[in-house]
């Protein structure tokens, strides 16, 4: 019973946050709301007994990515430009609304086939999950089955994930890494303005 109340509360807050994000134009406030959204999702994961996922969501979604977006905002501006300044009359909401309505209806229709939450006969529970739950402790001696699956049974998969993280770091270094001295950047900007 208490679970249902917590779930409904968290879901309501998630919905309110997303509507607020869509309606706002102050990017600084939107970044803060993104953090709140991630924190609420982390709460939902805890209610669903997935503390490992909640951990990641809280640390990455609410923590690091908020800081990164703030760092990006510091480089740009923290107000959204009005997209309809040029031709406000060209904006007709009916076609997008129609498309969104149809898509939402199809998605809701799709949820009818989803097995109930925690259904022991759902495909996710009957495939390899049973093997992991029964054999992870005797085979690896690790009580946390998530860690056993992540690091041992699916070691190749995790190696690939670490390689992806590493590649992301290399890509950021190649694109915007290194420090540019103040003087040359200023001169470059002035030079570009002169050309235009």
């Amino acid at each position: 019973m208490i679970d249902i109340i917590i779930n409904i509360t968290l879901l309501a807050f998630l919905a309110i946050t997303s509507v607020a994000i869509v309606r706002m134009t102050n990017l600084f406030a939107i970044v803060m709301l993104f953090g709140i959204f991630s924190l609420l999702s982390a709460g939902l994961f805890v209610v669903m007994d997935a503390p490992d996922v909640a951990f990641t969501e809280a640390a990455v979604g609410a923590g690091i990515s908020t800081v990164l977006m703030l760092a990006t905002l510091a480089l740009t501006r923290n107000r959204q430009k009005n997209p309809y300044k040029e031709a406000p009359h060209a904006h007709r909401p009916w076609l997008p609304l129609f498309v969104v309505g149809i898509t939402g209806a199809v998605l809701v229709y799709g949820t009818w086939d989803i097995p109930r939450f925690g259904d022991p006969n759902s495909p996710a529970q009957t495939h390899v999950a049973r093997y992991y739950l029964e054999n992870a402790l005797p085979e690896t001696g690790v009580p946390n089955v998530v860690t056993a699956v992540l690091a041992s049974y699916r070691g190749f998969d995790t190696l690939g994930e670490v390689a992806v993280v590493f590649t992301a770091g290399v890509a950021v270094l190649l694109l915007i890494g290194g420090r540019r001295p103040k003087q040359t950047l200023k001169q470059k900007d002035e030079g570009e303005q002169d050309e235009t």
Partner: peptide, 26 residues
């Protein structure tokens, strides 16, 4: 293996943060 994961993730997160934040300082 988890130690390797931890070192790489911590270092890459810091690299990304320093890269982004370092741009604003120029």
């Amino acid at each position: 293996v988890e130690l390797g994961v931890g070192i790489t993730v911590a270092a890459v997160m810091l690299i990304i943060f320093f890269s982004f934040a370092g741009r604003g300082r120029v």
